[in-house]
Write a protein that binds this DNA or RNA. Structure first.
Lengths: 134, 134
DNA sequence: TGCTACCTGAGAACGGTTCTCATGGTGCGA
DNA sequence: TCGCACCATGAGAACCGTTCTCAGGTAGCA
């Protein structure tokens, strides 16, 4: 069975306190910053477990795996701010249907899809405008 | 200016001969296999250039960057076989529109999207069925 | 409380990618 | 055609994120 250790719980909590996607390294640094002496390997293991159990979403950006706490059991995608990492869960029903249809048209079976939308969140958009107008 | 070297051309040709997505390492091995003594760093540089110029598409899978020759200038997505890497270019107009709309709804600006559909191509589906029925 | 199997953590190992820098070759002007 | 300047190349080291190793610790159960 899966044991409940304070380290695992600390990772879960740190992740749920985070608004957007964070890297394992950043989460590890954050935990160390709050006085939790958790090992890097443990953070990686905990995140992998959470992702496998559906309690966290993960995506790869620039060769780094990013994680985020998410609603377990619900299939959804993300709208992610390129600047600050803030993420919004979005449903993508039309895309689900489209993906299945496209796969079927080409004779592909067992379709899965990767759909993420990146952009600048309202706050970062405002900051970018200010910078641009300087 | 960008110089034309036989190494760069060799990478371009090797990539265009490939049907699906290949890793830089695999392409390098392939080039070495055909007697082209091209350095690994050069392959990486050439692929990065091709991707930047729009002559190649790239995606990251399991921490590895994969590349594929593509139609320059056209925005498209891919239907990729998980098993053999074969890829089909697909247009995704409905998804483009959806992505823009979702971004706008949440106040996100400068939307970009990552959309890839993975599955088993007809051939690999057939092979999988045979294996399953054994 | 004692036992045991699983978890932890420090650091090494690993794999893909990028960097370094001396050497070689391309492109261009004469 | 020749020479020059500068960019590209390539071998290997460096780098970076991730995974593995293994000894020691600890949760969970009886």
């Amino acid at each position: 069975m899966k044991r409940n250790t304070w380290q695992r719980e600390a990772v879960r909590e740190a992740l749920s306190r985070t608004e957007g996607f964070v890297s394992a390294q950043a989460l590890h640094a954050s935990l160390r910053g709050t006085g939790s002496e958790v090992g890097l390997a443990t953070v990686y293991r905990a995140l992998a477990d959470l992702a496998q159990e559906g309690e966290a979403d993960s995506l790869v950006q620039e060769g780094e795996s990013l994680y985020r706490a998410c609603t377990p059991g619900s299939h959804h995608h993300h709208l992610i701010c390129r600047s600050c990492g803030t993420a919004v869960e979005i449903s993508a029903d039309p895309v689900e249907a489209w993906a299945r249809q496209v796969a079927a048209e080409h004779g592909f079976t067992r379709p899965e899809h990767v759909v993420d939308v990146f952009g600048l969140c309202p706050e970062c958009s405002a900051s970018a405008d200010e910078t641009a107008s300087d």
